[in-house]
Amino acid sequence: MDLIKKGRKWSHNSGFMTLLLGLIAFCQESDKSKSCTIGYTSLSSGIIEIYQKNTEGKSNIKSTNEKGGYLAWSPDGKRIAFYAKYDDKKTWSIHTMNSDGTNRKRLTHAKNKWDNAPDWSPDGTKIVFAREYKDAEGVWHPEIWIMNSDGSEQTQIKSLKGSNPYFTPDGKIVFSWEFEDKSSAISIADIDGKNIIQLTHNGAKEWHPDVSADGKQITFMSDRDGNFEIYVMNIDGSNQKRLTYNDVRDSMPSWSPDGSQLIFISKTDGISTIYSMNKDGSSVKKIMSNGGQAAWLKIIQ
């Protein structure tokens, strides 16, 4: 696939980046998707702003201007969760707000800790998120926490050490298990942290799992072949397949509502760009430049 030229690596945790959060309507030619909405971040502005656009880029609606990123849709599509940074970017906190930018609430307040990567439970009552920090001895702690969607009853799932938690449709948690040697593996566990199953075994860095709406497949990013690419596998870890073949970092995949397509982030001439492709890696299409951290809206009926 001769799609992407060499560029600088994309890092969703780069502290110097100021992010712009937006929405874009993107309807596939097949017209199979039930939803055309994609949330994303952009470096086009110094503040976070929510937009809605049609396929021609018209009908922009600005609805908020808060710093933050890493969008997660509620199951009904009416609210979003995201993180925002405080204390000169030393403290990251989870927030929620309505999809039009109203009713913004800060849910976590742990000072000097990075709360990020929120995701909603299938019934919308819970939010799971990652917390990362260094202790007084300089030891890095990757933790996974869960709370009610209003921010109450914040609880660490102590048996899970990792990042990028994501709910399956049946209420389990898929996440990136972080090991002491800095490698990671996509794993799955019950919501209480029991019955942990490691799904990948490559000694690589494997991050950002996203589960298809039918709960049958997981997409994720991995550097197992020397460069971060997009992969897909069955929910039990079988039938692992590489989908992208580029000389730059491909990251943060997200399933379409009907499970037929994926969006992901890559670099074109050093610019973070959102692409779509079929779930077998074919028919790669550029959606827009200056976009990152993309998430497809998948409404649960």
Results as ranks from 00 to 15, higher is better:
W255P: 00
S44Y: 08
I235D: 06
H141Q: 03
Q240N: 14
H95F: 13
S238Y: 12
A294Q: 02
I157D: 08
G7P: 09
V232F: 13
N103R: 06
N195K: 15
A72W: 02
K6Y: 13
I24S: 10
I235F: 03
W177E: 15
T125C: 05
K267L: 10
L43G: 03
P209E: 01
K105W: 02
Y275A: 01
P142W: 11
S282W: 01
W255Q: 04
A81D: 05
G22V: 01
P169I: 08
A130D: 03
I61T: 11
I80W: 03
Q301R: 15
Y40A: 05
R106P: 12
N60S: 10
F16S: 14
T155F: 07
T200N: 10
R249H: 12
I271S: 01
D135H: 09
E132N: 14
M147K: 07
Y231F: 15
D192C: 07
G259M: 00
I157T: 11
K279T: 01
D88N: 11
R224Y: 07
G151Q: 03
S272T: 02
E29M: 14
N98E: 04
D192N: 01
A117E: 07
L297Y: 12
Y70M: 13
P169A: 13
W207C: 09
K53V: 05
N148C: 04
